[in-house]
């Protein structure tokens, strides 16, 4: 019973903070709400017994990605309402489009049947040992390839953000 209440609190916090990310005027508030949203998503991972991913999510998203975004927002001096006032037509169109997409996806899920799975409360698939064994045996080659991807991303971002000579 308590896990249902916990789920509803966490889910409503996630959705409300995601809405604040989209609708707040200043980019700095968007980034702050995004950090909060990521913490609630980490809470969902904990509720699904995916403890490795919860820790990695907090470290990678709240610790690395959002700091990078915050640095960029402050570096570019965007912490004011930079968007010009425009007609509300695109906003309404976007809200209607998003709502319709949600409707279609929910209808598709409603008409499909989920297989009868076991409860994740007592399974150990999300523990560090299980996921780590999987990564370092079966997915060893993709795991090593991510280092190549990171090298490419690092070099690419340095080249892109470097100041031009002329």
């Amino acid at each position: 019973m308590s896990s249902q209440i916990l789920f509803f609190i966490l889910a409503s916090l996630t959705i409300v903070s995601a809405l604040f990310v989209v609708f707040s005027k200043s980019p700095i508030y968007s980034v702050m709400w995004m950090i909060f949203c990521f913490f609630t998503i980490a809470g969902h991972y904990v509720m699904l017994n995916a403890q490795f991913l919860a820790i990695v999510h907090v470290i990678v998203y709240a610790g690395a990605i959002m700091v990078l975004l915050l640095f960029t927002v402050m570096l570019l001096n965007l912490n004011k309402e930079s968007e010009p006032h425009k007609s509300p037509l695109p906003k309404f169109a976007a809200i209607i489009t998003g709502g319709l997409l949600m409707l279609v996806l929910l209808a598709a899920m409603h008409s499909s049947t989920l297989p009868e799975y076991s409860s994740p409360a007592f399974s150990d698939v999300g523990y560090v040992q299980k996921v780590g064994t999987k990564i370092f045996t079966e997915f060893l080659l993709p795991f090593e390839m991510t280092s190549v991807l990171f090298i490419a991303a690092m070099i690419g971002s340095v080249v892109l953000a470097k100041k031009d000579k002329n």
Partner: peptide
Amino acid sequence: TILFSIGVMGVLF
């Protein structure tokens, strides 16, 4: 699904 739709909405407007 709700989170994905909110993301799509934000990208659109």
